[in-house]
Amino acid sequence: MPASTRWRRPRGGAIGAATSLALFTALIENPTGWLDPFMQGRTDNVALREAAFYAIGLTVVFLVLAALAALAIPKGKLQENRD
């Protein structure tokens, strides 16, 4: 691969996953508890389900932000930067 294009690869894809994992890990140890009345079924894993709910929610927020950022790039600008 030529050296001029080697450094133009997109970076930062793992930031969203690491942030969601950090939120999940923090909330599984210290659940907020306000979702308890809405949880049905087994009650021994409420902290796990609540942490997963917030982690997936954060991942969806990052997905929406990435889609909006991709739509915000004008079509002509992308071609100009590659030259």
Rank of each mutant, 00 (worst) to 15 (best):
G57V: 00
L58K: 00
T5Q: 14
I73L: 10
E50P: 00
K77R: 07
F24S: 01
G76A: 15
T43P: 02
T5N: 13
L21A: 13
P2H: 09
Q40D: 08
D36S: 14
F62L: 06
T32H: 13
P10H: 08
V64N: 09
F38Y: 15
P74K: 07
G16D: 06
A17P: 05
L21N: 04
T59Q: 06
P31R: 03
G33K: 04
Y54D: 01
L58Q: 02
F62Q: 04
R49H: 05
L78M: 14
K75T: 10
S20F: 03
V46H: 04
A67L: 15
M1R: 15
F62N: 05
W34K: 07
A72L: 12
L58R: 00
L65D: 09
T59I: 07
P37N: 06
K77W: 11
W7D: 15
V46N: 06
G76D: 12
A3T: 13
F24W: 03
G16N: 08
L23N: 02
L58D: 00
T59G: 06
P2W: 05
L21F: 08
I15L: 10
V46I: 10
L23W: 00
E50G: 02
W34A: 07
V46D: 04
R8S: 12
P31K: 02
P2D: 13
K75Y: 09
G41L: 05
L35G: 00
G41R: 03
L71M: 15
G41H: 03
L58V: 02
N81Y: 08
T19D: 09
R8H: 10
K75P: 07
R8C: 13
S4T: 12
R49K: 13
L63V: 12
V60R: 05
S4R: 14
A70Y: 08
T43N: 12
E29P: 03
L21C: 08
G41I: 03
A17N: 09
M1H: 14
M39D: 08
P31A: 09
Q79I: 09
E29K: 15
F24Q: 01
F53K: 02
W7P: 11
P31T: 05
L71V: 11
T32E: 11
K77C: 07
E50F: 01
T5G: 08
R6D: 13
P31E: 06
F53M: 06
G41W: 03
R6L: 15
M1V: 15
W34T: 07
L71P: 02
A51P: 01
G57N: 03
Y54M: 03
K77S: 15
E50S: 02
I73D: 14
A18P: 08
F62Y: 08
P74V: 05
A52Q: 01
D44L: 08
A22P: 04
I56Y: 03
A51D: 01
G57P: 01
I15S: 05
R9Y: 12
D44E: 11
A22H: 05
R9C: 13
R8F: 09
F62C: 06
R6Y: 12
L27I: 02
M39C: 10
V60Y: 05
S4F: 10
S4Q: 11
T43L: 15
L35T: 00
G13Y: 07
V64G: 09
D44N: 11
L27E: 00
G41N: 04
G12R: 10
T19N: 06
A52T: 01
V46Y: 03
